[in-house]
Design a protein around this nucleic acid. Structure first.
Lengths: 282, 282
DNA sequence: TAAATAGTGTCTATGAGACAGTATAGT
DNA sequence: ACTATACTGTCTCATAGACACTATTTA
């Protein structure tokens, strides 16, 4: 504490203070964007494979040119906050406002970015897949939806190992991670092997999957993955997909009962008994 | 993406890249340090008031000179990560390594720091009170333990209002906050009134209390608030203090059973039946 | 023996999981 | 009629909460 400060007024002090005079890192925001099928997407039943969609962008410049990365970018001074910056980045990439936006932590390891001292604030968000002009197969556009999941694998000596695998057509990205701890319910991962992802984005994606799994038990997030009106079966499928376990319909319905309101609409033309459509209870 | 980049090698690109050329914020780390009584502190029974200790530092310079703030400081390039920076800051302030360190989010609102574009990574940690040469009453030292808690108050029109109150001797700090949302189980607060705390630290402290309350149900954190050997009653008191609700001993003991191991030691000289000491099960 | 806290046994209500069964569209 | 999915009734078991009870020290 400089002794000059004490005799200065606060106004004077602030006039002389310039944060640019001090060393500071670059700050980025990276977003794990999960995709959901829109209103016309015909409910979740089409998605038999039980895997989650996630938006990745192929890097067109250095570093990690040609590798797949999370959408994101540098924090700007005119961003109101990291949250607003995340919304802006998602909008630039997808042209929509996300249905939800949740912080999953700051990633600031020493070697995470070869360009230098660059730390990242990571978020999870959910948007409708068809809003994004990303498509598989075609190379004209470099943003694509990958299907994937994080699965536990057998560790050799009591280590908690996980495999992250993302797939888009013939493109398969994978990484092996070790869970090294848990803070406030948030799992901490370390990269063991795999360099298909740019930066430490495999780590960020794994963290996103594991946090999504934690909150998927309180139902709240589940609604973000469906259109406004949905069937209880599709809601159940969302939870099954995120948690990676099958559920019994009777039990699921009992638990969800108080959180939804029925409408007078039904699905139709599916070759079996129609399902009542529900809405989230506000 | 600059087209020059594509014909450069990655090595060349990195040689030319300097993150210092781009606009970026200052980054700080602020820590909500909770205090616990040490081995000799004579268990938690002394603390009849059921409030939590928290370390605050009186600001000796601008801005917010004379106000109370969280310990913390600027992120340095030689810090390995924000977590390491937090540990360093705690060590500088208390001379001990914290028993636990958990991130609670990035605070980056536009007006949070009058000095300019400065964002903060906030943490919660737990240290033993007697390691810190902070003391009440005396003005020679500007770091002090405050007792306090976050309590729900009646909102006028369905608003979720909370009162944060911290007390050290005659010094009482308070703030009214509104809970405006919840993300991934983390409550989001907005300051309604009160300027006893520097910066947005009332917000950060409220977030810390609410997150602590969330995890206090899984028992794991509770152990950080006690010495290595403890009685089950003291463990129960910790949970009661954090959660702010009374618990029944029989039920508490049933739930905690599998998470502790008994020792062959007992308390004594307390004017009543001695209590067996337990240890955390590893 | 009284006071104070430590520690236990057990009843009850609630909720999760399992599973068998019924209902109703389309082909 | 058959298939595929929607939806319901009910049994069992685990667990949380309540509360009455016993145990053991110091003053």
């Amino acid at each position: 504490m400089n002794s000059d400060e004490k005799i200065m007024s606060e106004e004077e002090f602030l006039k002389n203070y310039d944060y640019r005079k001090y060393p500071r890192p670059s700050v980025t925001v990276d977003i794990v964007v999960f995709g959901v099928l829109g209103e016309d997407g015909g409910s979740y039943r089409k998605d038999e494979e039980k895997s989650i969609s996630l938006l990745l962008v192929k890097r067109g410049g250095h570093p990690f040119m040609g590798k797949w990365a999370l959408p994101g970018g540098f924090l700007r001074e005119d961003d109101e906050s990291v949250e607003k910056c995340a919304e802006r980045e998602i909008f630039e990439e997808t042209n929509v406002k996300p249905r939800s936006l949740m912080p999953i932590g700051t990633f600031s390891g020493k070697e995470r970015d070869p360009r230098g001292w660059i730390i990242s604030n990571a978020f999870v968000s959910v948007v409708e897949e068809d809003c994004v002009n990303a498509h598989g197969g075609d190379d004209a556009e470099d943003a694509r939806w990958f299907k994937g999941n994080l699965t536990k694998i057998e560790g050799d000596s009591g280590r908690d190992l996980y495999k992250l695998e993302m797939r888009n057509g013939d493109t398969v990205l994978s990484a092996i991670l070790e869970k090294t701890g848990c803070q406030f319910g948030r799992d901490i991962f370390k990269l063991v092997s795999g360099d298909d992802f740019a930066f430490d984005h495999a780590l960020i994606i794994a963290t996103a999957f594991s946090m999504l799994r934690k909150v998927a038990e309180d139902f709240d997030v589940l609604f973000d993955f469906l259109p406004e009106k949905f069937t209880l079966t599709s809601l159940q499928k969302v939870q099954e997909t995120i948690l990676g376990v099958p559920l019994l319909a009777a039990n699921f319905r009992r638990k969800i009962e108080k959180l939804v309101v029925e409408t007078d609409e039904y699905t139709s033309g599916a070759g079996h008994r129609p399902a009542k459509l529900f809405r989230k209870r506000v």
